[in-house]
Design a protein around this nucleic acid. Structure first.
Lengths: 203, 203
DNA sequence: ACCTGAACACCGTTCAAGT
DNA sequence: ACCTGAACACCGTTCAAGT
C-alpha cells in the first residue's frame, strides 16, 4: 500500500476498532468507515487492501495493545503474565473476537507477544519440537478461553453460552449441567487452567 | 422451524457442507444452496432460520461426524481418543474452520462429544470448578490446533502459516523462526501437546 | 500521486402472491 | 401448510475521471 496523507494508519485503525466496538462486526463496512472519517467509500482503498485489509486493521489494533513489558522473573511467572496480557487485550473488545480467532495476525506488533511467550518457554528448558509443543498448548489454551467469551450470536436477544448450557436436558448431559453451574469468575477460571498447564510443562 | 417435506434436514446439511468444501466459505450463500438443490432462494427459508441457520447447517454437519464410540479404557486414553476424533472431524473440512471457531455449536449432535469428554475427565477424579478448569484446558487445546490449520486467507496465493513464519526476520523473532523450522507432522504435534496436558491433569 | 463518485454485480431478506 | 418470484436495501469493488 502507498503512503497517502489525508489520514494516518493509526487513525484508520482507531476508527475501525471504534466501529466494531460500538456497532458490532456487522457494522464494519467500507462505507461505514468512510462516512465515519468523512469521506467516500473509495478513499479507504488508498489505505487498505480491500475487505481483508479492513479486517486486519481491527485485529492489528487489538493485538498491538496486548504486548506489555514482561516482568523479570521465573519463566513460569512470565508465561502467566504474557498469557494474561494477551487474553485481557482481546476481552476488552469482545465484538472483535471472531476476527481474532479467524484471521491469523502476522503484523510485527502482534508477533512481539508471541516471541516473548516463546522466549519464556525456551527459558524453561525447551527447544525445537518440544518448544513447539509447549507453545501450541499455551496459545491453544488462550484461544480456547477467548472462544468461550464469544458474544452471543447477533441482535442481543441470544443468551450467553453458560445460560444456554444450563438449559439443556440434564439427564442427557449431566456433566455439561455440572460445569454450567460451576461457571462464574472468568479470571479465576483462567488462572486455574494456567496452573494445570504449567504443571504439565513442569513434568 | 416447521417440518416441510420437499427436502430433509440431512439433504440441506449435506448440500451446504459440499458447497463449503468445494467453493470455500464465500460460496456459502442462500442463493447458491438453493440452485444446488434446484429451487429458488426463498425456499431455503422454510428450512433454516436466516443466514445464521445456514451456517449452523455446516457446523452441525461437521460436528455430527466427530462423535465416535468411546473405548472402554483408562480415562486418560479416553480423553486422548475423544480429542483426536474431534480434531480429525474438523480437519476433514478446512474451509469450515472459521465457522467452527466462531459459531458456538449447541446442537445435541455436537454436544455428545463434549459430554463424553467431560465424563472421561470426571472419571479422572474431578468435579465442579476443577472439572470446568480441566475441560477448558482440553477443549482450548483442540480449538488452538484447529486454528493453527486455518486455510490461507482466500484466493489461494496466500502461503500457509508456517511458511509465512519462516519468512520473518530471524534476528528479531529468533524463537518464532525456531518453531517454524520444527513444524512438520501435525499428528505428532497434536499427540505431543496432549501428552503435556495429561501430565498437567495428572499432577 | 492521490482522491473520489457513478455504476456493476453481487448479497440477505421482506412482501405478496401462488398452490 | 408450504412454496416461490419480484423487489428492496444493502454490500464490495471496478472504472473512469478528477485534482
Amino acid at each position: 500500500m502507498p503512503a497517502p496523507r489525508k489520514f494516518t494508519h493509526e487513525q484508520l485503525q482507531a476508527a475501525a476498532l471504534e466501529l466494531v466496538d460500538e456497532e458490532g462486526l456487522a457494522g464494519l463496512t467500507m462505507r461505514a468507515l468512510a462516512t465515519r472519517l468523512g469521506t467516500g467509500p473509495m478513499t479507504i482503498y488508498n489505505y487498505v487492501d480491500g475487505r481483508d485489509g479492513l479486517e486486519r486493521l481491527v485485529t492489528g489494533a487489538v493485538m498491538a495493545r496486548a504486548h506489555r513489558p514482561v516482568p523479570r522473573a521465573d519463566w513460569r511467572v512470565r508465561v502467566e503474565s504474557i498469557a494474561e496480557d494477551m487474553w485481557r487485550a482481546v476481552r476488552a473488545h469482545p465484538n472483535a473476537i471472531p476476527l481474532i480467532l479467524t484471521r491469523r495476525s502476522l503484523d510485527e506488533s502482534a508477533l512481539a507477544s508471541t516471541e516473548a511467550l516463546l522466549q519464556a518457554l525456551a527459558d524453561g528448558g525447551r527447544s525445537g519440537a518440544d518448544l513447539l509443543a509447549a507453545f501450541r498448548v499455551v496459545s491453544g489454551f488462550i484461544a480456547g478461553f477467548v472462544q468461550a467469551e464469544l458474544p452471543a450470536p447477533s441482535g442481543g436477544n441470544g443468551r450467553s453460552a453458560p445460560v444456554r448450557m444450563a438449559a439443556l436436558p440434564p439427564e442427557r448431559f449431566p456433566r455439561l449441567a455440572e460445569i454450567a453451574r460451576a461457571t462464574g469468575d472468568p479470571e479465576a477460571e483462567f488462572r486455574a487452567g494456567l496452573k494445570i498447564l504449567l504443571a504439565g510443562l513442569d513434568a
